[in-house]
Computed example of a mutant assay.
Amino acid sequence: MSEYKLGTGLVDGKPTPLVLIAGKAYPLSDILADEAPESLEDVFAHWAETDALLTERAGAVSGDGLDPSTISFLTPLSNPRKVICIGTNYKDHLAEMKVGTPPEFPYAFMRPQTCLAAHGQEVPLPSGAKMNDWEAELGIVIGRKFGPGDQGDPLDAVAGYTVINDVSARDWIASRPFVGIDWIMQKSWDKFQPTGPWITPARFVTDPENLAIQLTVNGTVKQKSNTGQMIFGIAAILKHLSGMMTLEPGDIIATGTPAGVGFGRQPQEFLAAGDRVRVTIEGLGTLENQFV
């Protein structure tokens, strides 16, 4: 069985689903020919069938493939139905944010698709926010419908995992009004969720709750932890969300960030124009973006 990852990039100027095999990237059509879906949205809409075909044929790929460093990446999924984020979900992050009582259930919010940004893409810092912060996160990609009343194993609904930087404008924590945090103002700026460049199928991730996760700003390590620090694991997150809504193929779920965010530092640190942020998760790859 040949391991592979999935992404999307420009090939001859056209958005193209890509398969990463042994360090080289191939258009999906090179492997699946006429059976190749036109986008990763289509791949995950028929995940079981497409995964089986890729597993069968990835080992027989021929040709030189593309050097990933030469690819202009797009977000792996350009238009997921839902982008869901889990907050305050790492024990070490709760400590640095001075949250004394752990949450009773996964604390969630939603983002618009316009928050997505690709690996290598510049991320504009909004003029209306000054306390822009980084958050390294493990991302889940859903591979089948999983909703209220589903008694199956939640992990069977996971198609794969990816790398996320959940950027936050902390201004609306620092000056929180009586009615609470404005999550739109904090989280919904354009390109505030760089994601990718690859999605690693779940079958190739032995234990997603035991992965090293690290973030650097201009080469300096700011976050260094392990997904084992999560308060709510992947199954618990999916059970909670699916009790309210039907999760659908291609949905993206960010699972929370560990300690080391700028807001929790003394003195506090925030992103500035020109900063380069790299997020690396063990076995999944590295996501890098420059803020402008």
Score class of each variant (00 low, 15 high):
S69Q: 11
K130R: 14
L10F: 12
P126K: 11
I164S: 08
A48L: 03
F192K: 04
V11G: 04
P76H: 05
T200D: 03
S168E: 09
E248G: 01
P27H: 01
A259Q: 13
P17H: 07
A174R: 14
S168G: 09
L138Y: 01
L10V: 09
S127P: 02
E96L: 06
P106W: 01
R57H: 07
V279A: 00
V61M: 07
G128Q: 10
I181L: 15
M244I: 07
R176W: 04
I253N: 07
G160S: 03
I253C: 05
T255H: 04
G65I: 05
L284K: 05
I237G: 10
M110D: 03
G149W: 06
D171Q: 06
F105M: 09
L53S: 11
K239R: 15
L238Y: 14
I184G: 00
D150R: 12
E248Y: 00
S127Q: 12
R278K: 11
M110V: 12
T280V: 02
P102G: 01
V221P: 08
G87W: 05
E104V: 13
L271S: 07
E288P: 00
M1C: 08
P80F: 04
N89R: 04
N218D: 12
S29I: 10
P103M: 00
E49C: 11
I173F: 15
Q214I: 01
R276D: 09
T8A: 15
K191C: 06
Q186I: 00
T220S: 12
A235W: 02
E122M: 03
A58L: 07
W172Q: 10
L54S: 13
L6Q: 04
T246D: 14
G283C: 01
N289M: 07
Q121T: 07
D166W: 08
I173A: 08
L28I: 04
I252G: 06
I231N: 04
G139A: 15
D92C: 07
G260I: 00
E96P: 03
K82A: 01
A202E: 06
R278P: 00
L10G: 10
R57E: 01
M244W: 14
V279E: 00
P249N: 09
W47N: 10
K91A: 14
N210P: 05
Q223L: 05
D64L: 13
L247T: 01
A129H: 05
M244R: 11
D64N: 14
W189F: 15
D92F: 04
A159W: 01
Q186L: 00
L53E: 11
I71E: 09
P126D: 08
V292S: 09
V217D: 02
P249D: 09
Q121A: 15
T255W: 08
